[in-house]
């Protein structure tokens, strides 16, 4: 049975990695070659689009152009990094005490709050979009990075993840610290938070995946292109398709590398949440 599953797994791995291969192949192709293969998509022709894994004339010109000749790429990159960093930091600042507080409230109230959190979490962005827009407009935060960052800081997901992480911690740890003379804040800061690092990393990874690739929020709330994130680079057709492919590949690799580095914490965090 194991022998049957092995090729299936290999095929699945290939299928999962194919987007990366596709992006990499496109990034080392010349524009004319990309256009030739994707004529069915971009050319408006009647023929089918095709692709190849091995470009006929491989070139790094797209990477050189992207990294050296397009300063807009870096503006967008730093904007994305700023958004992701600020949102993650904000979420941690808000979610950590919120989750810790939830562990201390009475169970009835906690259940009610958790229910509200789950309901909010289940709502897609399209549902929140209009109220968020109206609130940001009233707060005069449209067309500003704060308008993107602020709503996302108060996300329900990290609160839930961290609550489950805190609640899964053994009570003896807190009691031991209490006996050793630690105060409430010290117990939170020096005992609970370090123990909840896997959950925090999980929150970070999930938030990074979501906010590194966010499109709708900046597209709706920001008109000034200076504040656009990297995800909006692609629609700008002023650049060649090769550059867009190179940008997409680098974006994917960046996230992949971070994910791989934090993989252990992420798995641990997910296992804690799943137990709860």
């Amino acid at each position: 049975m194991k022998n049957v599953w092995k090729p299936v797994k290999v095929l699945l791995i290939i299928a999962l990695f194919y987007p990366l291969v596709f992006l990499f192949t496109g990034s080392i192709m010349g524009n004319s070659e990309i256009t030739h293969y994707l004529q069915g998509v971009f050319g408006g022709g009647e023929q089918w689009a095709g692709w190849t894994v091995f470009p006929k004339y491989p070139t790094l010109a797209s990477y050189i152009e992207l990294l050296l000749d397009i300063p807009e790429f870096y503006v967008l990159f730093w904007n994305s990094l700023l958004y992701a960093g600020c949102i993650i930091a904000g979420q941690l600042i808000v979610a950590l005490p919120a989750a810790w507080a939830l562990t201390a409230v009475r169970p009835v109230i906690r259940k009610g709050i958790l229910l509200v959190y789950i309901v909010v979490l289940l709502m897609p962005f399209q549902v929140r979009m209009l109220p968020e827009y109206l609130v940001l407009r009233d707060l005069n935060l449209l067309d500003s990075p704060v308008g993107i960052i602020l709503p996302e800081i108060f996300s329900a997901l990290p609160v839930l993840i961290l609550y489950y992480s805190f609640s899964s911690q053994p009570k003896v740890l807190q009691e031991s610290a209490q006996i050793d003379g630690a105060g409430e804040f010290q117990i939170f800061y020096k005992v609970a938070v370090p123990v909840a690092v896997p959950a925090i990393v999980t929150c970070v990874i999930l938030a990074l995946l979501e906010y590194w690739n966010m499109i709708e929020q900046p597209l709706l709330f920001i008109k000034d292109k200076r504040y656009w994130p990297l995800a909006l680079f692609s629609p700008q057709n002023n650049y060649g398709l090769g550059v867009v492919f190179a940008m997409a590949f680098l974006l994917a690799i960046f996230i992949l590398v971070i994910f791989m580095l934090l993989q252990n914490y992420f798995e641990e965090g997910l296992s804690i949440i799943s137990k709860e």
């Binding site: 990294l67 050296l68 397009i70 300063p71 790429f73 870096y74 730093w78």
Partner: peptide, 27 residues
């Protein structure tokens, strides 16, 4: 592991910063 992560992130950020400056000058 944390140190390694920080090192990689800082290196990456440094490279990106340098490339940002270069591309700005080029532009």
């Amino acid at each position: 592991m944390q140190k390694k992560l920080v090192k990689i992130l800082l290196t990456f950020a440094g490279v990106m910063l340098m490339l940002t400056v270069i591309s700005r000058i080029g532009a």
